[in-house]
Design a protein around this nucleic acid. Sequence first.
DNA 1: ATATTAAAATTGGTCGGACCACCCGACCAC
DNA 2: GTGGTCGGGTGGTCCGACCAATTTTAATAT
Lengths: 241, 241
Amino acid sequence: MTTISPLQKTRLHEGIVAQLQEKILSGEFRAGDKLPPERELAESLNVNRSTLREAFKKLEMLDLVEIRHGDGVYVKDYLDSGSLELLPALMRSGGNYDVAILKGLLDLRRLILPDVACQAALNRTDVDLAEMERVIGDSGLSLNDRDMLLYSAIGRASRNIPFVIILNFFNNSGLVAELLTLYFADPANVKRTTRFYGEIVGAIRERKPEKSKKIMFDLLSFAEERTIKIINEKLDKDGMQ
Amino acid sequence: MTTISPLQKTRLHEGIVAQLQEKILSGEFRAGDKLPPERELAESLNVNRSTLREAFKKLEMLDLVEIRHGDGVYVKDYLDSGSLELLPALMRSGGNYDVAILKGLLDLRRLILPDVACQAALNRTDVDLAEMERVIGDSGLSLNDRDMLLYSAIGRASRNIPFVIILNFFNNSGLVAELLTLYFADPANVKRTTRFYGEIVGAIRERKPEKSKKIMFDLLSFAEERTIKIINEKLDKDGMQ
DNA sequence: ATATTAAAATTGGTCGGACCACCCGACCAC
DNA sequence: GTGGTCGGGTGGTCCGACCAATTTTAATAT
């Protein structure tokens, strides 16, 4: 029995984006390389030039390529200019998790979220609070959804837009979703996290910034340790078979 | 006598992206709204449908719109799904700096960079170190360029790819560049920052993570305070005239 | 009347080809 | 050398057509 179908409806230009992105991230196309002309590349891919151009527009927005009118399309160094959106692809470059990147992401979470909680405690409105309480009380939500919605609500309550954007990147990229599923597979983790929900919302309700920060930091530290452990076990198992 | 021309070459579809993005961020188009059909909108903008579609591909990559085959193009809530690349536009929504977002960005910097310096001290190679020393010793660089290149070098030395990507977003978005120009207008700030360069590279050379973190944090706190002050003065002045 | 189903209309996705705008290198005039 | 000219290559835009997915409408069966 396998997991549910991916049900990806693949638009042609998206396939091209994925293909070219992979070639760039894997190093097959190096920074500074000049790609073949659009007309030529379109023919190679058996695709219309318009379609290829739509793909290029996405790659340009990801800062993976630079398009120079009258000259050509050049590969950029994604370490100099890449976007956060590249991380999911980078993390799976070898088929397995790239643990270094995963740890980097968890670092980021641990650095940012306590401050978000702190600012949320300072700036939250009653409406923000009601939304948090609704989310942690809604039994119709899956564990994953509840978790992500709560973080999203806390982010909004902080009124710090850069933080909100980064938080929602975590939520929407699918990276956290995968990790959460593994994490919540252990009932002990579910219990710990459920307790955390009450504590953090309570601290935000009482408008206690330092307490909120500490609660958030402690939970993240706990979850981070467990997650790294789970991933390492998974890698070991996959490595053996 | 004025400064040299900006030499902006504007591609048609980029103008469309800017226009639609502004309408979304300003709230003229609200989340959930359905945009006019491509054919209709293309005619309104006096532009070809292919060109409009290229613009849509960029807006889709920014997660500002969702394109549904056979249905239409819908506006998304950028607070739920937006990308970091939106911040520069958000910060200038009213023509002036949005100080709240600016502070959020500086928060982010102050949270992340000390950890980057810490990890750089742990993971740097001799090549990384040589690059840092080259940058701070290169008298051919402008103050702005030297600053950004040093941070970039420290970021790479940390070997933490998510951090590098966020750092380079700061550098490449143009936000930091503007602030730096204001910041470096005061010779006292130049002096303080130049001293910092020697200290931080020294600490990274000696592989002292906590020392590196503290040096970075102190400098950022100093620079942050000065920058906020400068911006507030600027806003006051602009407000009076 | 209501529910089901099939056709039509709407809309995004792809295509092929044409022409314009820009960059660059080769060549020429001074 | 210096500067201008020109031609070939490349991205930018345009046009009109058809394909594919979805929604809407109309016809039909119950």
